[in-house]
Design a protein around this nucleic acid. Structure first.
Length: 468
RNA sequence: AUUCCCAUCGUCUAGAGGCCUAGGACGACACCCUCUCAAGGUGUAGACACGGGUUCGACUCCCGUUGGGAAUGCCA
């Protein structure tokens, strides 16, 4: 049997990290077993489904690299199929028309709650359908078995069982004629030949009633795995309050897809002591049976650490491609200045995100107009003018504008003046970048370039002169 | 209210009855390195929710308690 899995989001919002992880696990399971991965959009809720949400989900999946082999399928395009099945079930009694009003249902629920019972439909219309006028509005309910228990083996949770007496007759077609989720998923997974349903934990409770529908349809019941949810840093349910929740937000905040994917695969799953996984390693080693049963809190700190890891270890040219997006986003023109991949090399270990890296690399491409006051206060001393003058003099005669040679200049000036390297490097850094923080002063100057450096140092010296 | 699910350092996890004096990672702290900031290196603190069983032996199995979560929709 070939494995076939699916990811089936409802397009009522953007793809958030919880959904992304579920998609990832489902995708990994399929890839691990050389199976097929399907994308299906569950848009039966006409009210809440939107096209922007569909676009965002697809864009997120692509950005993450979670490629699908089939789809995207849309449930709204399959209404005929659902209705055909419902009519068949109606004809032979597997389903029945329900004429109960909302008022009656609400009142019933209220009374059941009051009596300390679990609120559920009482089966009132199971046998009274014939007493109604042909044009009286109705919905269709699935006739759930009364006795016995539903058992299933969940690949993550183990054996789960629930008594049929706990289940009620759920609505499978609304009064307006549209089929409902719990019916559509079953039909879709059946029609599409899904062998393994990997989805969010919130569906554990729906699974037994769905299994009853599979049986009523004469369909083979697939395997199930319910992935726990993701919580915010504080252990509370993930919400906008926690900052970034959508996948696209992480892109905008400067994370690499490799980092998010790696972070997500480790959140809720482990493989010995290994933290870093390439895509191929994930596919090879991932096992759904070892996914954690409990909810996990999203730790942005660890994501940042992984992001930096990938910024440092991935091919600088590749990283530069992503950085370029952020440079544009921050309005920095990179046409006049060093190769972006060189900037990546210089800044990799000091940037948690590409967004940071972009803002840190401004001085490579734009003129320095202001100095960081704190840095000036700390490092501009009485002898700074002399330091800059000596540097300038030596730098002007440097044969080749290379980090190694520039390093020698700093060393020489420090030695001549009998001061530490820092007393030379820091004023130089401020002059050339306007900041107290940058990569090594030698590579920084190399990347900024000879003419810009000399001009900036001269400028700093004259600013100093103005002050005194 | 009922049913179902969950429970190892602050966080993510390793753990498939003896390998556990509970391992790793992020974070924290300290030291080393050092032209700044980082990165890197070394080290320190830090957890089996609680109570009963089962067993020669329990983080691991069972039962309860507590605490969390989900479902009980003509949402998905």
């Amino acid at each position: 049997m070939t494995v076939k899995t699916r990811f089936a989001p409802s397009p009522t919002g953007f793809l958030h990290v919880g959904g992304a992880r579920t998609a990832l696990y489902s995708w990994l399971y399929a890839r691990h077993h050389s199976g097929t991965f399907v994308l299906r959009i569950e848009d039966t809720d006409l009210e809440r489904s939107t096209q922007p949400a569909i676009d965002a989900i697809i864009e997120s999946m692509k950005w993450l690299g979670l490629t699908w082999d089939e789809g995207p399928y849309y449930q709204t395009k399959r209404f005929d199929r659902y209705n055909q099945l419902i009519d068949e079930m109606l004809a032979d009694g597997r389903a029945y028309k329900c004429y109960c009003t909302q008022e009656r249902l609400e009142k019933m629920r209220e009374e059941q709650m009051k009596r300390g019972e679990k609120p559920r439909y009482d089966g009132h219309c199971r046998c009274c359908s014939s007493h109604h006028e042909p044009d009286e509005p109705y919905c269709v309910r699935f006739r759930n078995p009364d006795d016995g228990v539903v058992r299933f083996h969940d690949h993550i949770r183990g054996d789960v069982e629930i008594a049929n007496s706990e289940l009620d007759d759920l609505v499978i077609r609304r009064t307006d004629g549209s089929p409902t989720y719990n019916f559509c998923v079953v039909v879709d997974d059946y029609d599409m030949g899904i062998t393994h349903v990997i989805r969010g934990e919130d569906h554990v409770n729906n699974t037994p009633r769905q299994i009853n529908i599979y049986k009523a349809l004469g369909a083979k019941v697939p395997e199930f795995a319910h992935v726990s949810m993701i919580l915010g840093d504080d252990g509370a349910k993930l919400s906008k309050r926690h900052g970034a929740v959508s996948v696209m937000q992480y892109r905008d905040d400067g994370y690499l897809p490799e980092a998010l994917i790696n972070y997500l695969v480790r959140l809720g799953w482990g493989c010995g002591d290994q933290e870093i996984f390439s895509l191929d390693e994930m596919i090879e080693k991932f096992s759904i049976d070892h996914v954690s049963k409990s909810a996990s809190a999203f730790d942005t700190n660890k994501l940042k650490w992984m992001n930096r890891h990938y910024i440092m270890t991935l091919d600088p040219k590749y990283v530069a491609g992503h950085l370029e997006w952020h440079m544009k986003d921050q309005g920095i023109d990179t046409s006049n200045g060093p190769e972006l991949s060189e900037v990546v090399k210089a800044l990799a270990e000091r940037s948690e995100t590409l967004k940071d890296m972009a803002s840190q690399s401004r001085y490579f491409y734009e003129d320095v107009t202001d100095y960081d006051p704190a840095a000036v206060k700390k490092w501009f001393k009485a002898n700074t003018g002399e330091v800059l003058s000596r540097c300038l003099e030596k730098l002007e005669s440097v044969a080749e504008w290379k980090a190694e040679n520039l390093h020698h200049v700093v060393e020489e000036v420090a030695a001549e003046m009998e001061i530490g390297m820092g007393k030379v490097g820091m004023p130089l850094r401020i002059a050339v970048t306007g900041r107290g923080v940058s990569p090594g002063i030698d590579v920084t100057m190399e990347l900024i370039g000879r003419d810009r450096c000399l001009a900036r140092i001269a400028d700093a010296r004259s600013r100093l002169a103005d002050r005194t």
